[in-house]
Design a protein around this nucleic acid. Structure first.
Lengths: 325, 325
DNA sequence: CTGAAAGCGCTTACAG
DNA sequence: CTGAAAGCGCTTACAG
């Protein structure tokens, strides 16, 4: 019965009758192929790696959720490895993972998707990789991202549409690729509306709660404070809300605040945050599809890959409103 | 050279000279045993599963961090599966995971460590399990927890030592095992100090930011409001801080607030939260040790297991102070 | 389109 | 204490 192998792996050239006969037995016996035997004999391991570094637990957890779900559907399994950016141990850790498990591919979450040392080690091992939201255009099977700039532009356009003319912006961590993109989108919307780019309205941040709090304080201390603040992520937006409330301002009546990410906290705080939903779990699903697809192909050369841009969504909740007249 | 197997697996009865000769070759060739071949032939898979449901991304991420690190040291690999409590698909999902990967054991994070359906399916499959912070005393290889009650008791004793006499308490999600334990510890400290148990000072919560905010509001609306509030976790403590600040109160000058967990946010918010550090990553390490140890043993019967209570730490930061005179 | 053979890289008893 | 043999459960060419 070596034909079962053919039908189980969905290969062509099997008679329908034969195929059905096999399928029936498989169902009846509750047969489940042993992944170890499969991997030993074949050229695929049915294992995919997720390489990450915990900047935002919510983001990583979302990726993992999407990836494990899709892996489950495809008969794959996900092995996770937490790495540290630019850590000299990376090659050794990778070598260990690869030689022991021989994963069919790796998914790199940011900021590891921009880690030169990791990327080099992976390339040396000829390991297929999909990069999530990379900054550069490193060589890889695929890159899956969302259009940060366009989303930020839409958010700012929404604030302008509400009637805001002076909009403060709190930047993200400079080292992360998404930060400058979000600022660029914000400024593009300002320009499209014919609004001036006042440098005083852009303050630094680092994606963390506290920098949002301080950034908001700085903006509200301006001679001409903004009527709305766009923080580059939700954590900072929450900080901004707290800073405003401490000064006795009502959000959104006195000050509109919006964020980016739609983290789980965004809809738990009060007021609930207007933000941009990142397609986190969809990005992971796409990455798994690319890697699993390429592993199934005989000729790796023709594998699809490429750049994928996934749709985001503007989530309007209760932290934004028209400015006070 | 089938003796290399013996030395690689650290078995006794090998001549030192022979052992050294093998080790030298292994190092020279950068030899790495293939986990698939090992698993196919042997009775161990060198794979451990982490079964969780994302209540707190930070908590899960901490567990995973600890588990992967320890797995790496022991030559194991971690496969993660996100499940849903009481989901009827659980047996099927589990069956799939077990028959394909044959993990040597499973680590169950709360609240899955109390999920009856999961526990039953695992027991049916005779899968060794370690439960993290379970509520009940379900049958398992091991249970690793921290002493929630004692930690809460210590926290309340600390507040009393600061001079507080009326201390508000915001409860956790009733469905989670830790919630009643923390309340019990709080009340034990009150009684030990001869303070009354005023039911009005205990308000419900659900471990989320918003319930902390509302709970604090409720407590501060009391005819005799408390001078300190102990929230059952950090998310709720952050909510309490915001509620206080909205009323124009200074934390900690006008109101002390403390939490539980030492989540990453706890030291990023302002003021930084006084809280209890849970030994999250250590719990995961202990779980891996138990499972790997049991897999290595020939006679599973004698495997250690049992109950493990790991040390926590009171982390005093700037959200608590003596009450205003 | 389908079957018989060999082999993936280890570990497990079983002899020496 | 150490070696030779068999086998784990699949997949991969290779014949029919």
């Amino acid at each position: 019965m070596k034909t079962v192998s053919r039908v189980l792996n969905g290969e062509p050239n099997v008679q329908p009758a034969m195929r059905e006969r096999v399928m029936a037995s498989v169902a009846a016996l509750n047969y489940r192929p042993n992944i170890f035997a499969r991997s030993l004999a074949g050229s695929r391991s049915y294992v995919l790696g997720l390489l990450y570094y915990t900047t935002s637990a919510a983001f990583i957890s979302g990726l993992q959720q999407g990836a494990t779900a899709r892996c489950r559907e495809l008969g794959y399994h996900l092995v996770v490895e937490s790495l540290e950016p630019a850590n000299p141990d990376i090659p050794a850790q990778l070598d260990h993972l690869i030689s022991a498990l021989r994963p069919d591919g790796m998914i790199l979450a940011p900021p590891m998707s921009d880690d030169a040392m990791l990327l080099k080690a992976l390339a040396d091992a000829r390991m297929p990789c999909v990069l999530i939201s990379p900054g550069g255009a490193a060589q890889a099977l695929g890159r899956v991202s969302m259009d940060d700039a366009h989303a930020a532009q839409e958010m700012t356009a929404y604030l302008i549409g509400l009637g805001h003319r002076r909009i403060g912006f709190i930047e993200g961590e400079p080292g992360q690729a998404a930060a400058p993109r979000r600022l660029a989108g914000h400024q593009a919307a300002l320009q499209a509306a014919g609004l001036p780019l006042d440098p005083a309205l852009v303050v630094p941040g680092n994606f963390q709660f506290r920098s949002g709090l301080e950034g908001c304080d700085q903006l509200l201390s301006l001679a001409q404070p903004p009527s709305a603040i766009f923080a580059s992520n939700d954590d900072m937006a929450m900080g901004a809300v707290v800073a405003a409330q401490r000064r006795g301002l009502q959000v959104p009546a006195d000050l509109s605040v919006c964020g980016f990410d739609d983290s789980p906290m965004a809809s738990l705080v009060w007021p609930q945050l207007t933000t941009v939903r990142q397609p986190v779990s969809e990005m992971a699903v796409t990455a798994v599809n690319l890697l699993a697809g390429r592993a199934a192909k005989k000729d790796a050369a023709t594998s699809a890959g490429g750049d994928w841009l996934l749709p985001y969504a503007l989530v309007v909740r209760s932290s934004t409103a028209p400015p006070r007249a």
